[in-house]
Amino acid sequence: MKIATRLASIALALSASAAVHAHNVWLLPSSTVLSKGDWITVDAAVSNDLFFFNHRPMGLDGLVVTAPDGSTVKPENMLEGKLRSVFDLNLVQPGTYRVAVLNDGVLARWKDKATGQVKRARGTPENIAGQIPADAQEVEVTQSAGRIETFVTVGKPSALKPSGKGLELVAANPTDLVKGEKASFALQIDGQPAKNFDVTITQGNTRYRDKINETTLRTDANGQFSVTWPDAGMYWLEATGKDTKTSVPAAKERRLSYAATLEVMP
């Protein structure tokens, strides 16, 4: 499948997840902490229940794995199945890695001049203009900036440098989370504090609970928030929003989305 289609697929999944929580979009590493360099496997899916493969695979065209020194790690054995995608990582360098699927997509909507029917197209900032007819009427263009990620540490943790693009999490050590202890984080938008932003945290295994039991927190004036983990296990952190800081001239709105998988130890 073409990259533009894949990016649009990720954007649609993020949008649906944020709106109704019908689908969760996530990366799930086999390990988040390694004592020494080793291989890990990462699953990637869009699901009805957290960390269960029961909807469809996530596209990996936007996958970027960043090593502690800022270099890029090449994923191996990438595979897209019917319900999940999967890839392996050989993590040799000590420190903390950022594993992320990035989306910078654009959605266009317009009315066809000849038929009056509503048409839609999804693509990238580079190719969306070419998909809209010159005589299109009532054109609406929306940009999306999404990040889905997780973190893995080999040996001693290292500082994570924010990209300064879109909505992202800032954490001193996102792989050193312990049951009963408070952890502090911050959200940023384009490198600036995401003020008064809602953050939702959900423990995994929702399949086996009558209620999702999600926790919603709100960032302060510095974009900061904290959480005391009630139990050990895998957690999903999500935040969504929108602004008008688009990089596509025709777009009046930018939809922001972020999701991260975090592991809390006993």
Results as ranks from 00 to 15, higher is better:
residue 172 A to G: 11
residue 179 K to F: 10
residue 38 D to V: 01
residue 11 A to Y: 02
residue 1 M to P: 09
residue 49 D to Q: 14
residue 97 Y to S: 06
residue 265 M to A: 12
residue 42 V to P: 05
residue 152 V to L: 06
residue 169 L to E: 05
residue 76 E to M: 10
residue 100 A to R: 09
residue 100 A to E: 12
residue 218 R to P: 02
residue 188 Q to S: 12
residue 12 L to M: 13
residue 17 S to Y: 00
residue 173 N to A: 10
residue 143 Q to F: 00
residue 56 R to I: 03
residue 119 K to F: 07
residue 222 N to P: 02
residue 209 R to Y: 01
residue 250 A to R: 03
residue 249 P to N: 06
residue 77 N to H: 12
residue 249 P to L: 07
residue 109 R to H: 08
residue 264 V to R: 03
residue 1 M to G: 13
residue 259 A to F: 01
residue 93 Q to M: 14
residue 171 A to E: 04
residue 247 S to E: 12
residue 49 D to H: 15
residue 258 Y to L: 15
residue 169 L to F: 03
residue 149 E to P: 01
residue 144 S to G: 05
residue 14 L to W: 04
residue 108 A to P: 01
residue 186 A to H: 02
residue 26 W to E: 07
residue 164 G to R: 06
residue 151 F to N: 02
residue 204 G to P: 04
residue 165 K to R: 14
residue 87 F to W: 00
residue 50 L to G: 09
residue 209 R to K: 07
residue 187 L to Q: 07
residue 209 R to M: 02
residue 51 F to D: 05
residue 266 P to Y: 00
residue 65 V to H: 01
residue 40 I to N: 04
residue 128 I to P: 01
residue 77 N to M: 08
residue 103 N to I: 08
residue 73 V to I: 14
residue 172 A to I: 03
residue 63 L to Q: 08
residue 144 S to E: 05
residue 34 L to F: 03
residue 111 K to P: 00
residue 242 K to A: 15
residue 257 S to E: 05
residue 122 R to C: 03
residue 64 V to W: 06
residue 104 D to Q: 14
residue 102 L to C: 11
residue 149 E to G: 02
residue 17 S to P: 06
residue 107 L to K: 14
residue 200 T to D: 12
residue 174 P to I: 04
residue 99 V to Q: 08
residue 129 A to N: 15
residue 216 T to E: 00
residue 10 I to N: 04
residue 113 K to D: 12
residue 192 Q to R: 13
residue 163 S to D: 11
residue 189 I to T: 14
residue 235 Y to A: 13
residue 261 T to H: 04
residue 252 K to V: 08
residue 39 W to Y: 10
residue 84 R to E: 10
residue 63 L to Y: 10
residue 214 E to D: 13
residue 187 L to E: 06
residue 33 V to Q: 12
residue 54 N to V: 03
residue 170 V to S: 11
residue 242 K to G: 12
residue 235 Y to N: 11
residue 45 A to H: 02
residue 9 S to F: 07
residue 257 S to M: 08
residue 86 V to H: 03
residue 87 F to K: 01
